[in-house]
Design a protein around this nucleic acid. Structure first.
Lengths: 242, 242
DNA sequence: GAAATAGTGTCTTTAAGACAGTATGTG
DNA sequence: CACATACTGTCTTAAAGACACTATTTC
């Protein structure tokens, strides 16, 4: 028996970690920020950034710390997703992981991408909110294997997002400070994996009270420029964690 | 250094428990199954049944075991709710709790109620899905204090139920094998805390494909007896845990 | 002016709410 | 038969989808 497994087995309780599924929108498709893993187990696969929860550390703080330490990312939208505790999810021993998902505009990620940190495109094989593991594809469209149960965690993230985007203001977290209605529509289409009706989307969002007109319009386009909106963050909307 | 050893040697880690918010419907109102606590801390308060997660034990199994050991309840609807990890939620140390909620018809609880096990009526002070702690009232309508963050856990349970009952078949879990449409309506009204429109409720449920007519009708009523329905459990519906 | 998307107005379709009226049991 | 609730049919209302039409920018 290898020494690591031996060390874990001497303790009677499961260990507690956090994993963070950070999603962003690139070229109209959702991508996840993943780490290329060098060590046993699952060496060579991609995994979500994660780490142990310290004693006296709040769970959301642990998730934010993991993103800061492993990806140099600060002040992103974070929300608890689900806790994964299958006894065999880590071959070294029983590790229970509280999964969080994070959303961030693509512009904020440029510096973070490096050798062992990559954005993989998500391919969701189901078309409703049924759930199940999903696939991660590299720039060439080749499937890259995911370690542990992280394909399952990303699937649960998509399931949560699809169920939530219609009535909760999460789409804004993937856009910059200001955006057009078409950009917001494209976020919703990327999350839901299907085309949406432009007319009713416009009506619904304008009537929702979530949008504030900036007065500005987009530029650099060969057509009538669209009005730019800002997300009106009310006191009941979720906050960011530093 | 290997991360596992680092966590064990450098940092102490939080302990992991499960807590179960078991809800039932009695006299048209939602009640929670609570234990009267005798020990420090929170001696004299009511608390949710809970316990430590054993190594190599799945989380849902731990939740079902707690219900079996502390309440002699088996084979109930159980679903993971949220994981509570505030460092000060237990004054004895950092205890992270994976909360589950359970739903069970009132008839199945009669034997479970005893000296230290009681059903308290829930009083939800908010009228949408905004969330927050809720109150527990005894048979006389007197508020009974809840230990730890269990008022918060019950509040999150109500929030989840209210958000879910409109599109997921959870109302059936609070009813017996067969039921009338009016009984199902009353379940929805108890969960949502408001009156619903009878006509559209009937239309919606009959069109949903979730109900199977038994052919029988209720008896013992001084008016035209209503048709009895059975919940049509499809393969995508949630299962029970033994 | 051509091209392209933004934005407006209106008709149709669909689901919920309202409500009148009929059906069927008990006492 | 009175009464109470079950159930049915239809009108109204609100929101989504469809689509025609106008507006405004770049090239």
């Amino acid at each position: 028996m290898e020494p690591v497994r031996q060390a874990l087995d001497t303790f009677r309780h499961p260990h507690l970690t956090v994993d963070v599924a950070l999603l962003t929108l690139r070229q109209g498709a959702l991508h996840a920020l993943l780490l290329r893993r060098r060590e046993h187990p699952f060496a060579g696969t991609f995994t979500l950034p994660g780490g142990f929860v310290r004693e006296h550390e709040p769970l959301a703080t642990a998730a934010a710390r993991v993103l800061a330490e492993k990806c140099d990312l600060h002040d992103v939208f974070l929300e608890q997703l689900f806790t994964f505790g299958a006894p065999d999810r880590d071959p070294r021993g029983h590790v229970v992981s509280v999964a969080y998902y994070a959303l961030v505009p693509h512009e904020r990620l440029h510096t973070a991408i490096g050798d062992d940190l990559d954005l993989l495109r998500l391919d969701v094989p189901w078309h409703d909110t049924s759930g199940g593991p999903i696939r991660a594809l590299d720039a060439l469209g080749t499937e890259q294997p995911l370690g542990f149960d992280h394909a399952e965690i990303l699937g649960t993230t998509m399931q949560r997002l699809r169920g939530k985007i219609d009535y909760a203001p999460v789409g804004f977290e993937l856009l910059g400070e200001t955006f057009t209605l078409l950009q917001l529509l494209e976020v919703h289409e990327a999350v839901l994996g299907r085309k949406l009706n432009k007319d009713s989307f416009r009506r619904r969002l304008l009537a929702s009270g979530l949008l504030q007109e900036t007065g500005d319009h987009e530029g650099e386009v060969a057509h009538r420029p669209a009005a730019l909106y800002r997300f009106l963050r009310s006191n009941t909307n979720p906050a960011r964690l530093a």
